[in-house]
Design a protein around this nucleic acid. Structure first.
Lengths: 195, 195
DNA sequence: GTTCTATCTGAACGGACGCTCAGATACATT
DNA sequence: AATGTATCTGAGCGTCCGTTCAGATAGAAC
């Protein structure tokens, strides 16, 4: 009873985060115990503390990894020629990126209040940065007379809220294909910012 | 140490629900203890069980009361002449009703997974009923050639998601008045469903 | 003024929680 | 083959959890 067969830091670490991710998403951070996470990995609770200083840091790590990947993946897109094309690209990216990560998205929204104040500030800054990139598109389109929004900040939030709605109800294999959903939302988004 | 001065069932009951509402909204159902709720009311934990069989029922009561009031208040609105007017009425109602109840809204959305299966089913049915009333408006407008949406069900969800976004960021006394916000959202909603 | 009852206290129940740590063991290094 | 180290176990710490309940008291009923 000690070190187990085939135990490795670079295997157990990711498995712990994966288990925590899944459990936090399903039951909520506060409702999940370290023992439950350990059981999912097939390990004793004490072993988790080789990989995280505490439960709170485990949550922060999950959220931060997600937000950083969101930002860096979006940054790698090829720049669009026009604001309209940039907006289309944003809509497509946002839907697809989040659709592939339902658990991360859920946690990033629901568990913000369980972050320590400093951690919360950091995560919010990243989120703001992402939102700002959408607002920049709307501002550019507004200046070029392509878009007509009363308030770019509100329009930004409204568009993101609308897109986030997809994730809450879309299920692969349902009535509509992802392409179809993307098309419908693109139509509605474009209309909502166009006179 | 027993019955306290001025203690009454019809006073303590609402105070308990009010305290639970506030605490659940701020920290989450799972993160709030019965002792915390009791302390907020100024009573011992055991006293709570004169008003709720258990913690779970307390949550359900809060959510159900909220949903029922949403539905009944909406039902009392004077019928609109046209789908466009009905949509405007819905947007206005939705924003204002929810803006006045931030805690209830937050709980109704975040704590669904903490309901027992039967309770969950009931709450979902009420929510669906409310959404259906919006879809009915969109369908009517679609048939009359006033709206042009690819899919009324998706448009329904998209509009509600967009409107719900307001509640997450709007703060009274901020840059914009509630009237202004309502106007901006009404513009965007109407555009998003119009060719 | 006495009795009755609704309401609350205070203590306790078994169990779960986050977290720590000495010791055991598998694997890496030589 | 021997040694060193990374990894995990198992036990346990103090604390909190939801819930129960006998007993005490305030206000209602008479």
């Amino acid at each position: 009873m000690a070190r187990t067969q085939g135990s490795h830091s670079d295997i157990t670490g990711p498995r712990i985060r994966k288990a925590a991710l899944s459990l936090f998403a399903r039951h909520g951070y506060a409702a999940v115990s370290m023992r439950q996470i350990a059981a999912e990995v097939g390990v004793q609770a004490g072993a988790l503390y080789n990989y995280t200083p505490d439960k709170q840091s485990l949550l922060y790590r999950l959220m931060n990894d997600h937000m950083q990947e969101l930002l860096s993946t979006y940054a790698k897109l090829t720049p669009a020629d026009s604001p309209v094309e940039a907006l289309r690209q944003f809509v497509s990216f946002h839907i697809r990126f989040h659709m592939e990560r339902p658990d991360e998205v859920f946690i990033a929204y629901m568990e913000l209040r369980n972050l320590s104040p400093e951690n919360f500030t950091e995560i919010e800054a990243v989120r703001r940065k992402y939102e700002d990139s959408l607002e920049a598109i709307l501002k550019a389109g507004q200046q070029q007379g392509l878009f007509t929004v009363a308030d770019t900040k509100i329009a930004t939030l409204a568009v993101i809220a609308m897109l986030n709605g997809v994730i809450t109800w879309y299920r692969a294999g349902g009535r509509l294909s992802l392409d179809a959903v993307e098309q419908i939302y693109w139509d509605m988004v474009l209309r909502s910012v166009t006179a």
